[in-house]
Design a protein around this nucleic acid. Sequence first.
DNA 1: CTCTCGATCCTCT
DNA 2: GAGGATCGAGAGC
Length: 216
Amino acid sequence: MTDVPERMPLNRDFFARPVIEVAPELLGRTLVRHTPDGPIELRLTEVEAYDGENDPGSHAYRGRTARNATMFGPPGHAYVYFIYGMWFSLNAVCAPEGQASGVLLRAGKIIRGAELAAARRPKARSANELAKGPARLATALDIDRSLDGVDLCRGGDAPLTLLQGDPPDPALVRHGPRTGVGGDGAHHPWRYWIADDPTVSPYRRHVPRRRATSAT
DNA sequence: CTCTCGATCCTCT
DNA sequence: GAGGATCGAGAGC
């Protein structure tokens, strides 16, 4: 039977709400990735909210561009971007169409297809590190820009789907400042994670890059 | 066209 | 805890 509630995809209405409401409720959900070699599944343990054009930390802060166009589209779709010249990160688009907000899926526990994930992450020292961090998660699940815009609500054999999964006890949900976000966006406590979970990535403060001419 | 710097990871200390 | 890797988006001229 595939009608078990936890195996049902999340509805589009779930995503069509303010991102700050959606983000903590994504914890414990199951992300399913269908690769040519087989399925990989992950239980989300850490996410971050990015509140569109009002949020200095968001890619949408300076308006719509070719790169971030998916964020302005309908909710419940994947926004995948390339960063630091090496890695990809996966977001779930939220809020009604036209509002460019999203939730960065930062980390999770691989619950199926661990061999496939480990093959893609040969440098991971333990199972907990397979998807401990946004770029690690994307690497482990074979996610790249070809998946930008895919529907996360379709289910079935779709390349990427978010199922209802197994949300944690609300008392175990923690929140704090976002990782690697500086400037005016730094103080928002929009990073959410499951308390004491070994697959949650370590917090790192934003480090401004040194300027060529500044000396002290 | 040129320049800056980023929603990070890995290695070594 | 610090620094290098690596390339594309976006802004400025």
